[in-house]
Design a protein around this nucleic acid. Structure first.
Lengths: 341, 341
DNA sequence: CTGTTAGCGCGTTCAC
DNA sequence: GTGAACGCGCTAACAG
C-alpha cells in the first residue's frame, strides 16, 4: 500500500509560514489583511516566505473565522443563456477589484430547482444572492431577505435587505408595436411567451395597449402562444399562416422566437421586410447579424447585472439600495419597413 | 452596550440542532452524513428539528474539517460565451446528482487573469479544476496538477492527476475544405483566427492540407487574418473584396466570424450560397437559424464538458482518467452549393 | 508593534 | 448506538 510519505506535501498553512518566517501566526494574518502595522523587516520576511511557498490562505478557514465568505451567489436560469449571460458579465465586471466573487448556479426556470440552489447557496454561506428573475415567489424572497441581502431582477419588490431592478416590458412592447403601426401596419401578429412567465404577459399587454392607443382592432387569431425558443417561433409562423388571417408584420416577444420566425418565413418564401416586417425583443448580441439585422427592443441586461451587483455591495455594507431601472430602447434596424399598399 | 438580543437570530448550527433534539452534536453529524447507525427515534427527532429550523450545515466548516470542499473549479474564458456556455452546461449536467458543484470563473483569454483565477480557486481549496482551453502553459498545468486534479480541454497533455480532451481541428478544417472542393470550388477564401490561438492554427493547417490533397494551389491573398469575432468576419470580407482576387467560397475559422461575413456579403449584394458558399466552424446554437442555415463543423462542446467533468470525478477518486476525443462532424446545411460555371 | 489564547462550525477518533 | 474531546486554518480579543 502506498502512503503519502513519498509526496508528503505538508499542507502549506499560515502557521507554517509563520514558523518559517520566525513570527507568530497573528503577524502573518495581520500582514495578509492589513489589520495592523507590522515592522518592515518582519513584513519582508513574511512576504518572502509566502512567495517561496506560493501560499494562498484557506478561504474556508477565513470564512469560518470571520463569518463572511466574500462570495455572492447568483441564481441564473441557464448558465449558457445568451440573454442572462450578459447579466453575468455585468456582475463579474462590477465585482472585479472588490474582495467579492460570484458563485453562479442555474435554476432552469424550475421552482424546485431554484429552491434547491438557494439551499446550496445558503449552505455555502454566501454573503448575499442576486436572483435573476425565475419563479421564486415574492414572499419567499422576502423571507430569504430576513437572513441575507437579496437583489432580484424582473420584478418590483423592496424591503429591508432587499432590492430589485425591473424594466418596463409593458412600455417596451407598446413602443415596438407602435413603431409597426406608425409604419402603416394594421394587422400585426404577436408571438407570445409562456403564459406563466411574468415578462411574457407584460409584453402582450403592451402589444394590446398600442392597438388600443391607435384605435386598432385586435385580431385574436393573430396572437399565438409559444415558448420563448427558436422552434416555438417557427411553429408559430406555421400556425399563423394556416389560420389564413392576413398580416403584414410579426412581433415576437423575444429575439430567439424572432430567429425561428425568420427562418420559417424564409422557408415559405416570404421576404423580410418586403413582405413581412419582423420585430423582436431583447436585442441579443446576435440580432445585429440576423438577415436582415433585426429591429428589436434593447434590454440593458449587462447594465442590469452591473447595477444589481453594485446594489448588493451596498446591501452587504448595511446600506439601503435603490436601483434606477435602466431604460429600454427600440433599436430600429432593417427587418421593418413601411407597409406596401 | 447594545446586544443582538433584539434581532437575536442565534445562528442555527449543528450544535443548536443537537441541543434542541436532545442529542449530541456527533449524532446529528452522523445522521447528516450517514456515517453510522442511529436509533430510529433519535433520527426522527433530529430530522424534525432540522426541518423546523431549516438547518443547512455550514459548508465552510465542513470543508475545513474534512479537507475537501466538494467544489470543482471551472476556468472558462468568457462566462457569456455561446461556445463555452455549452461546455458549462455539460459540466453542470455531469455534476448533478453528485455531491460536487462547479465554481465558474472567467479568464478572458488573458494569461495574467487566468493565473489570478487559478490562485483564487486554489484559495477556495477546490477539489480540482477544469480548464477550458485558455493560455496557461503546459508546464504550468503540469505544475498545478502536482497539487490537485486538472482536466484541460483544447490540447493533449497527460500525467498523474491530469487528463485532457481535445478535438482534431486539423481534421475538421480539412474536411470542411474538402467539402467545398468537392462542390467544385477552387478559389476558397479562409478567414483565420488570431495567430496566437492554437485552434486557429490547426484549422488553417487543415485548410491548407485539403488543398494539397486535391492538388490545388493556395492563393495567399485569399487567407485573411481576423479575431474570431463577428466584426472580424465583416472586415475580412471587405479586405477580400478589395484584393480583387476571385473566390466562390468562404471558410470562416469559426461561426461567429461566419455571421459577420454573412452580413458583409449581404451588404455587397452577394448571395449565399448562389454567389458565394459559406462555411463556419463550431456549430453554435444559432447557426441553424442563420439565413440560410449555416454549413459548419460541429464541435461537441456539450459532450466535452460532460466528459471533462466525469474525468474529473475519476481523478478526484484517485483513479486515472482517459478521455476519448468525441468526433467532429461536418454539418451540411444550406450555405454551400455546387459552384456555378 | 507583537505573541498568546480562544473560538468559528463541523467531522472524527476514542471510550463508554 | 452514543457522547466527549480534539483539530481543521484562520481571525480577533487580550495582554504585554
Amino acid at each position: 500500500m502506498l502512503t503519502d510519505a513519498d509526496t508528503a506535501a505538508p499542507a502549506v498553512t499560515l502557521e507554517l509560514i509563520a514558523r518559517e518566517a520566525g513570527v507568530s501566526p497573528s503577524t502573518v494574518s495581520r500582514i495578509l489583511n492589513g489589520t495592523a502595522k507590522v515592522s518592515a523587516d518582519k513584513r519582508l520576511a513574511v512576504e518572502q516566505t509566502i512567495a517561496r511557498f506560493n501560499f494562498q490562505p484557506n478561504a474556508m478557514a477565513r470564512s469560518l473565522a470571520k463569518g463572511q465568505t466574500y462570495t455572492i451567489g447568483v441564481l441564473t436560469q441557464f448558465i449558457e443563456s445568451p440573454f442572462y449571460g450578459e447579466a453575468l458579465r455585468g456582475i463579474e465586471d462590477a465585482l472585479r477589484r472588490t474582495p467579492y466573487s460570484p458563485l453562479f448556479v442555474s435554476g432552469h426556470w424550475n421552482l424546485a430547482e431554484e429552491e434547491a440552489k438557494m439551499r446550496l447557496l445558503q449552505g455555502r454561506r454566501v454573503d448575499g444572492v442576486i436572483v435573476l428573475t425565475g419563479r421564486l415567489g415574492d414572499e419567499q424572497l422576502l423571507d430569504y431577505a430576513q437572513r441575507l441581502p437579496i437583489v432580484v431582477t424582473g420584478r418590483q419588490l423592496s424591503g429591508p435587505r432587499l432590492a430589485s431592478v425591473d424594466v418596463d416590458d409593458f412600455e417596451g412592447a407598446r413602443e415596438a408595436t407602435r413603431h409597426l403601426i406608425e409604419l402603416g401596419h394594421t394587422r400585426i401578429a404577436f408571438i407570445s411567451g409562456p403564459a406563466d412567465h411574468p415578462d411574457a404577459n407584460e409584453r402582450l399587454r403592451g402589444y394590446r395597449q398600442a392597438h388600443a392607443d391607435a384605435g386598432l382592432a385586435l385580431v385574436p387569431e393573430l396572437v399565438v402562444p409559444a415558448d420563448f425558443m427558436e422552434t416555438g417561433g417557427m411553429l408559430a409562423i406555421g400556425q399563423l399562416l394556416e389560420s389564413r388571417q392576413n398580416f403584414t408584420a410579426v412581433f415576437a416577444a423575444n429575439d430567439q422566437m424572432a430567429y425561428g420566425a425568420r427562418l420559417a418565413l424564409y422557408r415559405r418564401n416570404l421576404r423580410v421586410p418586403d413582405d413581412i416586417s419582423l420585430v423582436g425583443y431583447d436585442d441579443l448580441p446576435n440580432s445585429t447579424y440576423l438577415m436582415p439585422p433585426l429591429t428589436t427592443v434593447r434590454q440593458p441586461v449587462y447594465e442590469i447585472g452591473r447595477l444589481a451587483a453594485q446594489a448588493m455591495l451596498k446591501l452587504i455594507a448595511g446600506e439601503s439600495a435603490e436601483i434606477a431601472a435602466p431604460p429600454l430602447e427600440l433599436v430600429v434596424r432593417e427587418s421593418t419597413r413601411r407597409v406596401r399598399h
